[in-house]
Amino acid sequence: MDIFIQQMVNGLTIGSLYALVALGYTMVYGVMRLINFAHGDLVAMSAFVGLTVYTQIFGENITSLVAVITVFVFTAAIVALVGVLLERLAYRPLRTAPRLSAVVSALGAGLVIQNSVMLIWGPNMKIFPSNIFPSTIWSFGGVVITFTQVMILGLSSILMVGLYFFINRTKIGTAIRAVAIDQDAAKLMGINVNRIIMIIFVIGSALGAVAGLFIGVYYRGVTFDMGWMYGLNAFVAAIMGGIGNIPGAMLGGLMLGLFNAMITGYISSQWAETFTFVLLIVILVFRPTGILGEKVAEKV
């Protein structure tokens, strides 16, 4: 029983990270019908940016709430800027092109980001300092929860709830939903589609940056090519939930995190990916557009 609860805590932690990254995929997909294959590499990049910001501004040994907040805000801002640039340079020129051309452009952009990270920070693993968050640990019976886990769960919950209200309750959120349903109609109603897409990339990249930083703080070792693995898992989560659907990405992320943790805890980590994709395929066989994804009827 303890193992079960422990794996649940671990699973929810990694699941919220998947969910944060999945939101980036799903929001871009919802508005542009594009799988942003570069998103995972953006997440990896944020870990490196965050590390540099931390060491450059605060040095190795200073930890304070101000420092942590600064690192998060700075990193999110830089990565958001890269995300916007990515859209401008690699995706906007292809908005009217065949859909797969944009996919290739996204794959190319992923290569560019990944290899830029490698050239700037080197090909070797970088280690996050262990003292960014206090090393406080709570234990309940045999179940251990770290301060970092609480931070991850807390902050990602806040961000996700915030995003949900932003999308559903604000004017910009309404505009985002309108653009997702019908770009042309939204344009006719006076919505600036380019601006909405920019906002999508700012939000998606910033959420990815938070996830990337947390990955660094939680696992400590970061590599330039880790974006592929996290990106793929998050993308699978988005698909499971129903790509284009925001609550779907959150649900998919948490679900996948839990599922992964249970597989690693009870079966074997050697087969983790196999189980992930078997689950995905089973879900898709029964619900071809994911758990919360709506079936899009084509107008004839």
Partner: peptide
């Protein structure tokens, strides 16, 4: 057979999945 009816991007990730499972089968 079971996935051929899926819409574009869903099928894309399902085929990636088959490839990944294949590699794990080889490695294990």
């Amino acid at each position: 057979g079971p996935i051929i009816h899926l819409r574009g991007d869903y099928l894309l990730v399902a085929t990636i999945g088959f490839n990944i499972i294949f590699i794990q089968v080889l490695e294990n």
